[in-house]
């Protein structure tokens, strides 16, 4: 493809990234660096602030309704702190799966792929994309949550009882390293598309068209990184290496969720997440 076509593809995916994801890297960066002019997130660092923060989240659901989301978190049943945090996290995750799906559909050529292959690409790619999407929301001290309205500290998450305390720590470790790459919104958009279009997922029937699409996105990503980050010639290679780390991270995450399902009597996994994680690794 001509470089003009590749640039057009980058622009298109970046637009789609802004359209489908409520908290982009640039927005998260502004919040985390305190550049939002008096609109800083509510900090959750202990049980007391968690209780206050939950009320705070409920009070600020308006932007969600404005985006015509019909699904709101269910009324919080009384229960253990850890399970309550987990319920909120998985509700947001299910919403994020929908956002990633809409993003995938906007990748040129994706919806023309075999329908079962589209399902497999999403099933395997969605948690990798979501984990990567989490990185800009994090710094070494904590993570943004609830569309950037909440900042939950890493120490608080680590203080939850086992195995809940083990859930976020590997994501922080990944995020701190990933954020060093200093990608911008358009780089992120292309990287997500590369992850989704992985032709080596188990069970794919028609691999060739997937690989062809990925090849084009990879060319666009390489060109873009060379143009935007000329001072870092290794960036493209470094970014591709992250895909290996992501697979391991997701495999560990899924193992942990399966363990939780066995151990926690009260835990109920969201049907969409259940569907994705069943027989995945």
């Amino acid at each position: 493809p001509e470089s003009a076509d590749l640039r057009a593809l980058s622009r298109q995916l970046c637009l789609s990234y802004h359209r489908h994801f409520p908290l982009t890297k640039s927005k998260a960066k502004a919040i985390l660096s305190g550049k939002t002019h008096g609109n800083s997130p509510f900090v959750i660092h202990d049980m007391k602030s968690l209780t206050a923060g939950q009320y705070f989240i409920n009070c600020r659901q308006l932007p969600v309704l404005e985006r015509q989301r019909s699904v709101l978190p269910p009324e919080e049943p009384a229960g253990e702190l850890e399970l309550s945090v987990f319920r909120r996290l998985q509700f947001r995750s299910a919403e994020a799966v929908q956002e990633v799906t809409e993003f995938a559909k906007s990748i040129p050529g994706f919806t023309e792929l075999d329908m079962n292959d589209q399902v497999i690409l999403l099933k395997y790619g969605v948690i990798e994309v979501m984990t990567t999407m989490l990185a800009p929301l994090m710094n070494k001290d904590g993570t943004l949550f609830a569309y950037g309205q909440i900042f939950m500290t890493r120490e608080f998450l680590k203080s939850l009882r086992k195995p809940f305390c083990e859930m976020m720590e590997p994501k922080f470790e990944f995020a701190v390293k990933f954020n060093v790459l200093e990608l911008d919104d358009s780089d992120m958009a292309l990287f997500f598309a590369v992850i989704i279009l992985s032709g080596d997922r188990p069970g794919l029937v028609n691999v060739k068209p997937i690989e062809d699409l990925q090849e084009t996105v990879l060319l666009a990503l390489e060109l873009q990184l060379k143009t935007i980050h000329p001072d870092c010639p290794q960036l493209f290679a470094k970014l591709l290496q992250k895909m290996t780390d992501l697979r391991q991270l997701v495999a560990d995450h899924v193992r942990l969720i399966h363990l939780l399902k066995k151990q926690e009597v009260q835990m109920c996994l969201h049907p969409l997440l259940q569907e994705i994680m069943r027989d995945l690794y």
Binding site: Q68, R69, S70, V71, A94, V97, Q98, T101, E102, K105, T111, M115, N116, Q118, V119, L122, K123, H270, P271, L272, E275, I276, R278, D279
Partner: peptide
């Protein structure tokens, strides 16, 4: 297809919100 019916629905239906 039955095993991934919500994903199928998400992929096929772009406008109406999916009842989860």
């Amino acid at each position: 297809k039955e095993k991934h019916k919500i994903l199928h629905r998400l992929l096929q239906n772009s406008t109406s919100p999916v009842d989860l």
